[in-house]
Structure formats: C-alpha cells, structure tokens
C-alpha cells in the first residue's frame, strides 16, 4: 500500500517514509511544511469560487493570510497516513456517529429517560498529537461517550450510562485510529 505523509492537522501529503522532522525547524523546512496546507487551502478557495480565474486576485492573498495564521500555531509533528485505512475509518465512523445520535435522541424522548451518567478514565495507547486529538473528537460523537479532558495519556470520558463496556468501545476506536496512522495497534507508542 502506498503510504502518505500527513501533517499534524490531519491533512495528507504525498511522499515515502520521510524522517520525523525535528522540533526546531529551519525557515526552508518551515516553508516546505506549508506547501501541502497551501495546496489544500487553494483547493478550498477554488471550490468556493468555482475555479474562476480572476478570483485568484483575492484567492492568492486569502491563502497567504491562512498560511500566516498556521504559522502562529506551535509546530506539530507529521504523521504517516494510510489512505485505505482512513477511508475504512470514515465509513465505520459515519455509522457510529449515526448510532450515537440515534441513541441519545431515543434516550431524550423516551418517557423513562434511561440515564446513568458518570465519569470514567481511559489510558490511551495512542501517541500525542493528531491521533490523540482525533480520538478525543471521535469519542464525543460515539454512542454515549463524551471526552471531557485529555491530559497526557489520560482521557476523561463522560458516559450516559456508566456500565458501558469502555474497553470494547474505545479499544475498537483506538485500533482503527492506529490503523489510519500506520501505528502498531494496542501497543504503547512513545510520542
């Protein structure tokens, strides 16, 4: 399977097995880091402005402004992303999000309102950065779970029903996210 390099913002860039970039970057490397976001942002502009040629008079400055905003944020690590696993994740996640919405809607309109809320802690095996952020956001859309805190490896999750089998639900999600980023599943991965 062809592998893709991804920036920490979850966007993928073509390339083969690049070394992880050092934390302090030279300006040139920084410029190169911005090439891929620039392409994505230009595509967004093109889609919005219907690819009209004269629109780039404003689109160019818009992309530059957006890239400048990106440089205000602390630099982040790159991740390798497996496109096929990402697609599979998207499909699975869409089904889970629908399940989550149906579940909470039924609880809301049911006369008995079956709730047994509480907090639980989860120790994630996913490394810091995009995978962990993706986990926290995905947890919030899964049935009955909402991420309330992420501190290092510890993820605090609010549950609509505290008897939910966290290990099964979140474990499965972690394995799928690990697959998206080509990470060994279930193992401790150093950040």
């Amino acid at each position: 399977m062809k592998s893709f390099q991804a920036l920490d913002d979850g966007l993928a860039v073509a390339g083969q097995h690049r070394k992880p970039a050092p934390l302090v970057r030279m300006p040139r490397q920084r410029l190169r880091r911005l090439t891929f976001p620039a392409v994505i942002l230009a595509v967004i502009w093109g889609v919005l402005a219907d690819w009209r040629l004269e629109s780039w008079l404003f689109g160019g400055p818009a992309v530059l402004l957006a890239l400048w905003l990106l440089t205000l944020l602390p630099p982040a690590r790159r991740w390798t992303m497996a496109p096929l696993a990402a697609l599979r994740f998207a499909g699975w996640f869409a089904v889970q999000a629908v399940r989550g919405a149906v579940d909470v809607s039924l609880r809301a309109v049911s006369p008995r309102m079956p709730l047994n809320p509480g907090f639980r802690s989860w120790r994630t095996t996913l490394p810091e950065g995009t995978p962990r952020i993706m986990l926290a956001n995905a947890v919030s859309l899964l049935p009955g779970t909402l991420s309330a805190e992420i501190e290092g490896q510890r993820l605090v999750i609010h549950l609509l029903d505290c008897h939910t089998d966290l290990a099964a639900e979140i474990g499965r999600l972690e394995a799928r996210i690990a697959a998206v980023f080509n990470l060994p599943a279930g193992k401790e991965t150093a950040a």
């Binding site: 913002d9 942002l41 992309v63 952020i133």
Partner: peptide, 16 residues
Amino acid sequence: PVWQGFARLTLPAAAI
C-alpha cells in the same frame, strides 16, 4: 490539545 487541533484546521479555513 483538542483546541490546538481545532485551531489548526479551522483558523486557515475561516480566513479563506
């Protein structure tokens, strides 16, 4: 970190 990830995606797109 969740805010950081959000800002990384949203701020540039909002500018566009």
